[in-house]
């Protein structure tokens, strides 16, 4: 089956000398084709080399999780693991509390992302189909600015604010700014999607007796699903990977999400490479999976995110 669908090198007639028409024309056609094939090969070698360079650190990380530290000392960093045991995963998840950090990361990602989508759907609807005083000011001055502000800009006052609200060392303190920033980003993306929908869509829903709330959730949201899913995937990746806000607000290690916990873990166990690589794998893998599932939407968003 497999051999038939991918012919081996000897079975492809195109590679062999083409049947002679006039000898010269055949040769030039053949060389042209050979040149094109060589060029394609060179391009793929180049792109493949880059891919290998990009993947190499991740492959080393993954292989490292199956080794023991003494093995790295004895056989060097480049040796392959002797066996594929998951002992390091067990140690890191249970003895070093990464299972708890998973739970922390979940509570620091799922609720703010889900709520931010609801917030964004609502505000995108108002900002696209309704007219009201102050609309442009609120759109540019609050939502637009909210998208441009990065966590590091606000980390110092955010600590003071959380402190005065009693939100230091709470998930809410971290979730609120992440939720707001995600809601702003998603508002702009979903709004531009809503703006592209014909006005009749809304009017016919209203003629049918729907209120604006039903029109939004029963007509607009189902159509805008691709945009909403893209926003959800992107903000999930961003929120999961945040480090600065948890660093500033969560001083209790038991509340740390994975990136913060990983940084602390490395500081404590700097000598044990396999355990640290296991921690890095546990932190990185979920978002790589989310990314692979939502390709190419995330890829699109990563580039559009720049101009947000």
């Amino acid at each position: 089956m497999r051999a038939a669908s991918s012919p081996g090198p000897g079975t492809r007639p195109a590679v062999k000398t083409p049947p002679a028409r006039s000898a010269g024309a055949a040769r030039s056609k053949g060389t042209l084709r050979a040149m094109r094939a060589a060029r394609a090969l060179a391009i793929h070698l180049l792109l493949g080399l880059i891919a290998a360079l990009v993947l190499l650190p991740f492959i080393m990380m993954l292989l490292g999780t199956f080794r023991e530290h003494v093995d790295i000392i004895r056989r060097g960093p480049l040796a392959l693991p002797a066996s594929l045991g998951f002992a390091n995963y067990r140690t890191v998840l249970f003895d070093h509390h990464f299972l708890r950090y998973y739970a922390n990361s979940f509570w620091l990602t799922a609720p703010p992302v889900a709520l931010s989508l609801v917030f964004a759907i609502m505000s995108a609807f108002a900002f696209s189909v309704m007219q009201f005083p102050g609309k442009n000011l609120l759109l540019l001055g609050v939502v637009g600015l909210g998208v441009m502000v990065a966590s590091e800009f606000i980390m110092i006052p955010l600590f003071q604010l959380a402190n005065s609200l009693g939100l230091v060392n709470t998930f809410t303190g971290v979730n609120m700014p992440n939720l707001a920033m995600s809601a702003c980003f998603s508002t702009l993306v979903i709004r531009s999607f809503f703006m592209g929908l014909p006005r009749e869509l809304l009017d016919s829903a209203l003629v049918d007796g729907a209120g604006s709330w039903q029109a939004l959730w029963q007509v607009y949201v189902p159509i805008a699903r691709p945009a909403i899913v893209t926003c959800g995937a992107l903000t999930t990746v961003w929120t999961w990977n945040t480090y600065i806000i948890p660093l500033v607000l969560l001083h209790d290690p038991a509340k740390a999400p994975l990136p913060l916990a990983l940084a602390l873990f490395q500081g404590q166990y700097v000598a044990n490479v396999p355990l640290i690589m296991t921690g890095a794998t546990l932190t990185a893998l979920p978002m790589i999976l989310v990314y692979l599932v939502f390709q190419p939407r995330i890829a699109w968003g990563l580039t559009q995110g720049a101009i947000k």
Partner: peptide
């Protein structure tokens, strides 16, 4: 049909969650 939305507080109710949370937790610290 949808013109009457221009008046009243309806649009503000829709944008309030995003705008208020952003004002408090992003714009104010900024």
């Amino acid at each position: 049909m949808s013109r009457h939305w221009s008046r009243g507080i309806l649009p503000y109710l829709y944008i309030a969650p995003t705008v208020v949370s952003t004002l408090v937790f992003v714009i104010y610290p900024f």
